[in-house]
Design a protein around this nucleic acid. Structure first.
Length: 715
DNA sequence: GTGTTGTACATAGGC
DNA sequence: TGTACAACAC
């Protein structure tokens, strides 16, 4: 039960034992950030500096919140009752349930995930006869969410032009619809919680007095609204302890605002910025590479990681002729590592985008190597689970039109688009929910009766039995039994019953005002905690994932694949503001995942969207000092004509004939241009003085150049 | 009202 | 290349 303060380095100790003041902790990768955060909480509580109820600690993921809770519990003599530890959304939900009346919400309000939100918007746009070409649902969603994250309601958006005016109308209509149906989307959860404190002085005072210490994890990932909410919570003198790393900010594309770090320093007149720069994870060469790379970014608070461990081995770099070649090499290296005793689960294969996993998977599969791919559908996002949840939601909230539409004809009740439309018209006219608008003698009435019966039948059952009963009586189980390949779905539906049981068993402390209805709690849990991506965690398997999902993880050996211009950095990023810097931070995150060994690779050709692409090596490879790397293939191979030779597939017999060689240049050849720099020829056409070649210059773009005019040189 | 073909589209993904 | 959803035919 000791805090083991003696094991902390001076900076960590200073952070943990900081006195009565605000603090910004710049915590580099692998610098013991979580340890500092949890030890500080324990130190505050154990020393009697604050009661557990005075602690509010917030993270971004449920996983991080769980880990924090576990570690804090281990350091304290009793279960830390009364602490608020959770995600922003989880804590907002908790607050809104407790004060749903003040927040203007029904007690059992349902939470829309992004999919649900999009479905709700599509329905709205259809009902309003909006031209979906001019106002695509996705863009409306984007607009709404961005405004909410700025804390701006529909009535407050400046109407700069006609299009904006239209978007704002839709925003307002969407919010009305949500209100009517008693549902709340993710950004709304945060905005409501913010507005609740902003408008209700009594409540604000209550919480601001209660929480004496507010601790924030991954502070660089907070958006503007989250920061403003934190400021309200700290409005009565609470001490803020914000931990973050600007170099690991990789989520600006979804609203994260690194600027919050600088704002925080200023707004709270932070006296102490503590830098945790000693890294306990990686060998020296790996850290040197990371430091050198990130030094190319201009917008930084500044930080340099160091380690007491040795330099370790050089980074191994491989150039593949193709993506398949790269994958073959990777598999061989993995096998070699395994022979040397590295466990598969301690090897991470990282890539920029999910599409890249396929080739690697193929190679792994053919060699019989166990692997696990992260990403994709999570448990509570699966179709059959969402169907079951829709029934459960209707039992709890019949006004939930989203759920109504989802399952009114599932299993089939012979209710088609026509009937639905009529129903929607009627509901709109009467200003009521679809459920209420159902005429007594219609086909749909059988459905509403079913829901009402379910409600009555399950009223006094324990939660898992409620779920079991609804899954069976709704006809879903039967429906999926008759569906071919429905075995997995049946299994998942059964697993849902188990999930309900597990949820019920988790002894969660109930504070006054907390929802007492277990079903409501479970439905919120399902929305907020999407569950595991894939079963089979803990099995010995190679770990495949995007760089984004690797954040926060570490491996003995790491492969970063597809280090090519256009892929990593991604071509989309060049059009984004500071996009390239974010890509570089992403590469920084990837590198710093490795403990002992780091492998970097790229391929000369790659199949993307069914087409062969010729990419030049990523600039990030050039930003890493040569001395740290060991090239397994000749650096930036000068091999020419690779697309037409050797093992490479012949062009299809009916493919459009392409000029293989024009004006002394060949497809696949590396070239240099005085203005655009180095590139690779990806296409050619014409003859003699008309000869033109298409060159991929990476960040400079893809260009057609006349051979006679452009000063192209073989590189 | 349901099954089938056809076309558009393709970063990253937490809650 | 593979998927997702919309417009089509039964």
């Amino acid at each position: 039960m000791s805090l083991h303060l003696e094991h902390l380095n001076p900076e960590q100790l200073a952070a943990v034992t900081l006195g009565d003041e605000h603090a910004l902790i710049l915590a580099g990768a692998g610098s013991g950030k979580t340890r500092v955060l949890t030890t500080r909480i324990a130190w505050l509580v154990k020393g009697g500096r604050v009661s557990p109820a005075g602690i509010l600690a917030v993270t971004f993921t449920n996983k991080a919140a769980r880990e924090m809770l576990t570690r804090v519990s281990a350091m304290l003599p009793v279960n830390p009752r009364g602490m608020w530890i959770g995600t922003f959304h989880g804590l907002a939900n908790r607050m809104l349930r407790a004060h749903h009346r003040d927040a203007g919400l029904p007690q059992a309000f349902q939470i829309l995930d992004s999919q649900d939100q999009l479905a709700a918007l599509k329905r709205l746009l259809k009902g309003l006869n909006v031209d979906e070409d001019r106002f695509p649902p996705r863009e409306v969603q984007y607009f709404v969410n961005n405004r909410k994250e700025e804390g701006v309601r529909a009535g407050e958006v400046p109407l700069t032009d006609e299009t904006t005016r239209r978007f704002v109308e839709l925003y307002a209509a969407y919010d009305e619809q949500c209100q009517r149906e008693g549902v709340v989307d993710f950004p709304e959860l945060l905005l409501r919680a913010f507005e609740l404190l902003k408008r209700n002085e009594l409540l604000r005072e209550h919480y601001a007095q209660r929480f004496r210490h507010v601790l924030v994890d991954e502070f660089q990932d907070t958006n503007r609204l989250q920061y403003r909410w934190l400021k309200l919570l700290a409005s009565s003198g609470a001490r803020m302890f914000c931990v973050g790393d600007d170099d690991q900010s990789i989520y600006t594309f979804r609203g994260a605002n690194v600027g919050n770090m600088a704002d925080f320093e200023r707004d709270f007149r932070v006296k102490h910025v503590i830098r945790l720069e000693q890294n306990y994870r990686s060998h020296g060469n790996i850290l040197d590479a990371a430091n050198a790379l990130i030094a190319n970014n201009r917008n930084r608070l500044g930080k340099n990681l160091w380690t007491a461990a040795g330099k370790g081995e050089p980074l191994r770099v491989f150039e593949g002729e193709s993506d398949a070649d790269e994958a073959r090499w990777l598999v061989e290296e993995v096998q070699a590592l395994a022979r040397e005793g590295t466990r598969l689960s301690q090897i991470g294969v990282l890539y920029r985008s999910n599409a890249q996993s396929r080739v690697v998977e193929h190679a792994l599969f053919s060699q019989g190597i166990a692997y696990r791919v992260y990403g994709g559908l999570r448990f509570f996002e699966r179709k059959e689970i969402k169907d079951a949840l829709a029934y459960l939601r209707l039992v709890a909230t019949p006004e939930d039109d989203n759920s109504f539409l989802r399952v009114v004809n599932l299993p089939s009740r012979k209710i088609g688009a026509r009937t639905i439309e009529e129903l929607q018209d009627a509901a709109r006219q009467q200003g009521v929910s679809l459920f209420k608008a159902v005429p007594g003698n219609s086909k749909a009435a059988a459905f509403t009766r079913l829901i009402e019966e379910l409600k009555a039948e399950t009223a006094n059952l324990p939660l898992p039995e409620v779920v079991r009963h609804v899954v069976e009586r709704s006809g879903l189980l039967e429906h999926y039994k008759t569906e071919r390949e429905g075995a997995d779905r049946i299994e998942n539906l059964e697993e849902l019953v188990n999930a309900a049981a597990a949820f019920g068993e988790e002894a969660r402390e109930v504070e006054p005002g907390e929802p007492t209805d277990p079903l409501t709690g479970f439905l919120a849990h399902a929305a907020l905690e999407a569950g595991e991506h894939q079963a089979g965690e803990g099995h010995e398997a190679l770990q495949l994932m995007t760089v984004h999902s690797a954040k926060g993880l570490e491996f003995d050996a790491v492969f970063i694949t597809g280090l090519e211009e256009g892929l990593f950095p991604h071509e989309q990023s060049v059009t984004e503001r500071d996009g390239l810097e974010e890509e570089r931070r992403l590469a920084y995150v990837a590198i710093t995942r490795a403990r002992q060994r780091l492998y970097l690779s790229h391929a000369q050709t790659r199949m993307l969207h069914g087409q062969t692409r010729y990419n030049i090596p990523s600039r990030f490879l050039e930003e890493i000092p040569e001395a740290l790397m060991k090239w397994l293939t000749p650096r930036f191979s000068k091999k020419k004509d690779f697309s037409w030779s050797g093992r490479s597939p012949e062009p299809l017999p009916f493919a459009k004939p392409r000029a293989r060689e024009v004006g002394g240049f060949r497809i696949g050849q590396n070239v240099h241009h005085p203005k655009f720099g180095s590139g690779v020829i990806i296409d050619a056409e014409g003859q003699g003085t008309d000869a033109r070649v298409q060159v991929n210059f990476g960040n400079q773009g893809v260009k057609w150049l006349a051979v006679a005019v452009a000063k192209l040189q073989a590189a």
